[in-house]
Design a protein around this nucleic acid. Structure first.
Lengths: 227, 227
DNA sequence: CCAAAAGTGTTTTCCGTACACCCATGC
DNA sequence: GCATGGGTGTACGGAAAACACTTTTGG
């Protein structure tokens, strides 16, 4: 067994290099439902099942660029939250030589999204609580992304990328509840959000339909911040 | 701009595929010092600096196998804690076409380690508090690994892989202190460890040198477990 | 005046932290 | 008997959780 594994200057051996895919789990919240964007497989293995959008890394392209490109391709949205998740080796359908897939997850405000209807793979939003048949081990990836998202909700301001610039506390709470999958106490929720100082009240109010008009809030920062 | 990014059956385009490297940060604790294993660069860019051990992914080889292989190559140890960290695209020295590096981190009990002295790149343990000049962005990787390790210490039993099967609470505490970089209160530490039920007392005692002999403990599980 | 959603405080519980002294052994 | 390391309990403070009623608007 040749011991050729090192990080010394790497000889460019003529050996089929593994392909690298980049896959992006795109989440949004619509009407109190957490949804993920999936594309329809019209061919190959797992025909007629659904899969997380992704593609091959271009030569020389930084990983995050490929992920952003994918996100923009599918949703037309950019500048929103995007973070690397995990790297798998059995996620893509490029079998020869093995392929590895670097997964990312993104959060988008659905009102800003224009799904690329024109494309051949018919992207569609699916509620996380009722997913269709998924190709490969994509279900694991979605669940992993969900777990990570739930975690980040607790100690970061990532929710900013699921909401418009101004929003009510109830809207924010609904976002949290849809992601966490459980109800939250209104008073405790407000206390926590305000004491963490990730949001601040504005002077505007919003009346939507019945009921007392709600104060509008904004995120203190619209960049990812811890705490 | 050709829209060729998808996860449909991937056409095997003739395009230089990026190389994939696997890099493993190997930590141990010796005499109350957290140390990382580094190798010496005898050539290439960053000559005479030090780097995290790593190598190219072999064709068709699962990522984790490559990481385990690297770990065994360097330390002779296996079956210990190993976890994926992050995937970078600017860590290796394979520039043409860009290379990506999947990083892992491992924890080993130094008494079980036999460093591969024979090899050309002279692996050596370096205390995290006094690192040598490092190649590439390896310092970032080490710090990232350290942050992750500190985190995992709090809510998992990973420390099991830094200690022998039986150990005293003081030994365990020294391990925690070296990783966290600060002293801990003895009583609070014991309370926490026992209430989390990750360790259990045995009936044996150990007398080493002076002082009252200490009760020996063992980890309830020697697999990675949360909480 | 009624339905609908917004807004608001107090109490309890749990966990992390701070802190000082006695115990068993070897020499 | 003394030096060395092992072992133990209590009190405080802050954060999360439980919990119900009043306010403002539209119809």
């Amino acid at each position: 067994m040749p011991n050729r594994s090192n990080s010394q200057p790497a000889p460019l051996v003529a050996r089929p290099a593994p392909l690298v895919g980049v896959v992006v789990v795109i989440f949004t919240v619509v009407d109190g439902e957490l949804k993920a964007l999936l594309i329809h497989r019209s061919a190959g293995p797992y025909t007629d099942m659904w899969a997380i959008p992704g593609g091959l890394l271009r030569s020389g392209e930084p990983l995050v660029d490929a992920a952003v490109r994918k996100l923009v391709d599918e949703t037309g949205v950019q500048d929103l939250f995007l973070e690397q998740l995990y790297t798998f080796n059995d996620l893509d359908d490029v079998t020869p030589g093995g392929a590895i897939a670097v997964t990312y997850f993104a959060l988008v405000d659905h009102v800003r999204v224009r799904l690329a209807k024109r494309t051949e793979w018919q992207p569609e939003w699916f509620a996380m609580r009722s997913l269709p048949k998924l190709a490969f081990r994509n279900e694991d990836v979605l669940n992993y992304a969900l777990a990570r998202l739930r975690n980040k909700l607790e100690y970061t301001n990532v929710a900013y990328s699921l909401l418009p610039g101004l929003f009510t506390l109830s809207q924010l709470q609904r976002v949290y509840e849809s992601i966490l999958g459980r109800g939250l106490d209104k008073r405790n929720f407000r206390k926590r959000m305000l004491s963490r100082e990730i949001i601040a009240p504005t002077k505007d109010r919003q009346a939507e339909g019945a009921g007392r008009p709600a104060l509008l809030y904004q995120f203190v920062s619209r960049e990812p911040v811890e705490m």
